[in-house]
Simulated assay, not measured.
Amino acid sequence: MMYQLKNITTSVTYNAEELELVALLNSKPFDTWNCKCPLTEFPRGTSTARKNLKDKLKRELLVIQENYCAYCGINFCLVTNSKIHRDHVLPKNTERYRKFTYESKNIVLSCDTCNGLDIKKDKDYVTYYSDDYDSIKTSIVHPHLDNVEEHINLNNSIYAEVVNDSQKGKMSIIEFELNCERNLVLRGKLMQRTTVNTAEEQLVDSIMGHFRQLR
């Protein structure tokens, strides 16, 4: 399957040692996702421990998300591994959300298109803020906190359709270009055909090759 859009029903669980590391990293008033972990701020070995944690997040999220982008639903088999992003739903480079840098519900895997400069990147979609992450509300469908099926329907059409006039559904469809040509091709192949002949396969491959060249 090349396309599947659904909410993430579970998040990565940290062990006691990882929770201690996360608490330390999240407590700093600067970017701890990419900093060099100076010894004046962190104990020796923090950089290695952080890398292991980030690797774990990517490894386990690939399984949890079943290899699909959290925003557009594209299968990661269509992009190279280097283009699979660990994305922060709430931007990590904003002082207000820095405490959630390693909050597992704030991290998803996305394709480079959805997390690129032309779409999400560091946009702030929060409409209601709380120090309790589970209480935060966003203008887009939050991959961890919302049920996609309550906002967007993809069951009976190649087009992403808004459910019950959902404003979140409308916003996500617009922001992540869910009805762009690339996604329509993929959904058309998946949802409208029980069998795919060679000519159709070649057409899909040709269009996808065109999109890769434009990036």
Rank of each mutant, 00 (worst) to 15 (best):
Y3Q: 14
L5R: 04
K6W: 04
S11V: 06
V12I: 15
V12R: 05
Y14E: 04
N15G: 08
N15D: 15
A16C: 00
E17A: 15
E17T: 15
E18I: 04
E18F: 05
E20L: 08
A23H: 07
L24F: 04
L25G: 05
L25S: 06
N26Q: 05
K28T: 00
F30R: 02
T32S: 09
W33M: 05
C35K: 03
E41V: 01
G45W: 13
G45I: 13
K51D: 10
E60R: 03
I64G: 02
Q65G: 03
Q65V: 01
E66D: 15
N67H: 09
I74C: 07
C77I: 12
C77V: 12
V79P: 06
V79M: 10
I84V: 15
H85Y: 11
V89H: 00
L90Q: 05
P91I: 02
P91R: 02
P91G: 02
R98P: 01
K99I: 10
T101K: 02
T101N: 03
T101E: 02
E103M: 00
K105P: 05
L109C: 13
D112Y: 14
I119T: 09
D122G: 05
Y129D: 01
Y129F: 12
D132C: 06
I136H: 03
H144Y: 15
E149V: 02
N155D: 12
Y159C: 11
V162Q: 03
N164E: 14
Q167H: 11
I173K: 08
C180R: 15
C180L: 09
R182S: 12
N183C: 13
R187S: 06
R187C: 05
G188Y: 06
L190Y: 10
N197Y: 03
Q202R: 14
D205F: 06
S206L: 14
F211S: 06
